[in-house]
Design a protein around this nucleic acid. Structure first.
Lengths: 334, 334
DNA sequence: TGCTGGCACTCGGTATCATCGAGTGCCAGT
DNA sequence: ACTGGCACTCGATGATACCGAGTGCCAGCA
């Protein structure tokens, strides 16, 4: 469908447009490396590319701008020689992971800032699913007569808690026994195993056990998959219309929507969703670049960039790939 | 300094400008209630107000716009008859606190959205200081040979954790003894009391105890005073220049800066900081409306609005006051 | 056949200019 | 002390012209 030269031209148009934000004319394209034909020839090809839906012309007397389809072809073309991050950026990433310690939440927040700083886009990190990490410690704490807090410390240092409302007050003794039952059952195993906890046959203990399991079961993804967002300011800088910024901010404030979006993109087997490919109308001018990360070899979470469709895809892909790998490694070490 | 009529005129200009975002001319002012003089008279007074620094004229042939000083006078004038929130809004607040349950973090996040929705400004909630709530339960969990997580469950259902790096490995037995020591010392008392924990004289236990106390002492305000931000989208909608939006977002992403800003405003005894009064150059076009909230009668945290200087101060003040009162009450109940 | 140079054409952006009108300051009069 | 009246200012709006980047097309060349 796209012969060699047309795809070179498309590539040139996209790169140029990404850097200048101006419609690209045929004369500019001839200056690009790898193009040894006249502007007239380029014009003919560009007309063809427009007819095929890769480019479009804002006005008759203007240059061309890539369509979503054009960006898509550009991105798909990138797969060959895996692009590397500039050495400055790579060093920044390395230094980040060498120097950042402390609690996981801080680290993930800091990671969004790292990504945003590298790419000048908004960055999202979805925290590791609670279910992935083995439980290290379990505890029930009574906050009020019929309110109990179920606290589980996971091996990765994160904490899961569930507020539990009981039908009737539970004595301290009962809570202690429930705690023991849960601890022995869950220790070293994922939190989701709580569903299979064995009942004791004790009339006071069992309802509490069931309530704990129920609380875990009903806890939405929002509970476990904490979403960290950073770099909204950089994002704002890359749009012209304030209206667009508003819409994107609206999305980014809805954690559930963000998680769903990322999962959806990954489920479709994509690393990048461009414009309408995101499936969200307000994101028509946005692209998402996403990468999952793994802990101990199994999928744990994901991180993503959200920015203008006119973003530097090679750099964004490289940044996301590198950071996801390093983050996974880092979280595996613990 | 401001006679009766001048201050009425100032009030009219500010209200009008808040709602129209257009410079206000003398003719418009005459239409305001309480003004029974001709436009010429108003003009004279407005010239005087401008000379005194309350108003300013973008161009010779334009109406007047309030200066920071003008807004300040307007706001200070508001104190008399405490403004009430519209009954719709009040109902919304009531419904919110009646229906929102669950974990404190969710509640505080939701509160930012409530405030933002009411006022169309960005909202900030600074979580209750950890030190305020009594400790309910304490635990040390070993994550790695020399890494221990110190977990404290507070009476309000929040959890404080500190990552502790030990100089040498600690046995399970030692950790258990440290836990017991901490638990007996801290139970029912604020976390800060950890500073006064008694040493046991045990050579294995004491270093760990000291490490815990040190971790608590060195934990910055960032650790305890969690900052929740919401409504950035609404904020973006109330500015013209994307540059301003960017600057505000930059501020809002720096939790420490936000906390400092709010504390600073409160320390100066203000409810509102207008434009340059914020003391932050990028916020020259912004105002902050802040209110502390109390739990059990003692100051626990604060909430604030951050938006254009051209905001609806009466409404903002009323919203912040009402929500802070309800939030405090709600958190007191637990 | 495929590429190129040339050319007429399009049309958004910018500059110039005139006009309009909201708003002002000032002053003489009540 | 206030008001009506008036000359004046100047940003906003709209018309007009012009420029130039960029296009499509075509005839000619390898």
């Amino acid at each position: 469908m796209l012969d060699e030269r047309k795809s070179t031209i498309l590539r040139a148009v996209v790169s140029e447009y990404i850097h200048t934000a101006q419609p690209v004319g045929s004369a500019h394209v001839t200056r690009a490396p790898g193009i040894d034909v006249s502007s007239a020839t380029v014009r003919n090809d560009m007309a063809q590319l427009e007819a095929d839906g890769y480019l479009y012309q804002p006005h008759t007397s203007a240059g061309r701008v890539p369509t979503d389809k054009g960006y898509r072809a550009f991105v798909d073309d990138l797969t060959g020689p895996r692009i590397r991050l500039g050495s400055n950026e790579a060093a920044r990433v390395r230094e980040f992971f060498d120097t950042t310690h402390g609690e996981i939440e801080h680290m993930l927040t800091a990671t969004t800032h790292l990504l945003a700083g590298l790419t000048h886009q908004a960055a999202v990190v979805v925290g590791p699913v609670a279910t992935a990490a083995p439980v290290r410690s379990v505890q029930l704490v009574e906050l009020a007569p019929q309110t109990v807090l179920f606290v589980a410390v996971l091996a990765n240092g994160s904490i899961e808690k569930r507020m539990i409302e009981l039908d009737s007050p539970a004595s301290e003794d009962v809570l202690a026994r429930v705690t023991t039952a849960l601890a022995t059952h869950l220790d070293g195993r994922p939190l989701t195993d709580i569903a299979t906890v064995a009942l004791t046959g004790d009339r006071a203990v069992d309802p509490v056990l069931r309530a704990c399991a129920a609380a875990e079961a009903t806890s939405g993804p929002a509970e476990s998959e904490q979403v960290y967002v950073g770099g909204t300011a950089q994002m704002a800088g890359s749009f012209e219309a304030i209206e667009t910024v508003r819409e994107v901010l609206t999305i980014l404030e809805q954690q559930l929507v963000v998680v769903t979006l990322l999962r959806d993109v990954l489920d479709r087997g994509l690393q990048v969703a461009i414009g309408t490919e995101t499936g969200m109308e307000p994101l028509a001018d946005c692209s998402v670049v996403v990468a999952p990360y793994e802990i101990d070899g199994s999928p744990a979470g994901s991180l993503a960039l959200l920015g203008s469709t006119r973003m530097d895809y090679p750099q964004a892909l490289a940044a996301v790939a590198l950071v996801s790998r390093r983050l996974g490694r880092r979280l595996t070490e613990g």
